[in-house]
């Protein structure tokens, strides 16, 4: 499963990273270099494994509804790059159709 130049550009686009043209060949090489070390995993028999490892198989603790909102030590204006009338301001989306894209 070698990473192609196209794979890299697709992934960079998903990650919202604009890569310098000259960096692309190096990154393709580096990613393939790293991933080839990962191939050993494919030979490992994990048929017996039920569920992935890691956090709390005990189940998660839950919060009571309501309570005091968590405070902000500094006003939003102190860290926001641009605010107007209380809104965070970002550049307009490319097309208005994009504008209707939201939580799905």
């Amino acid at each position: 499963m070698a990473v192609s130049r196209e794979d890299l550009l697709h992934v960079a686009s998903l990650a919202r990273l604009a890569l310098d043209e000259e960096a692309v060949p190096r990154l393709v090489r580096e990613l393939n270099g790293i991933l080839e070390h990962m191939d050993v995993l494919r030979k490992v028999d994990t048929s017996g494994v039920t569920g992935a490892a890691g956090v709390g198989d005990a189940g998660m603790p839950l919060r009571e509804d309501g309570g005091a909102p968590y405070p902000l030590a500094h006003p939003r204006e102190a860290f926001a790059p641009e605010m107007r009338d209380g809104f965070f301001i970002v550049p307009r989306l490319a097309t208005h159709e994009d504008a209707t894209e939201s939580v799905e």
Partner: peptide, 22 residues
């Protein structure tokens, strides 16, 4: 670049994302 930290301006939202993160 929308709520805090570095923002590199861009004509469109996508430009701002790409430039800020790069």
């Amino acid at each position: 670049g929308a709520r805090y930290g570095l923002r590199v301006r861009g004509g469109t939202l996508r430009d701002m994302y790409d430039r800020t993160r790069s």
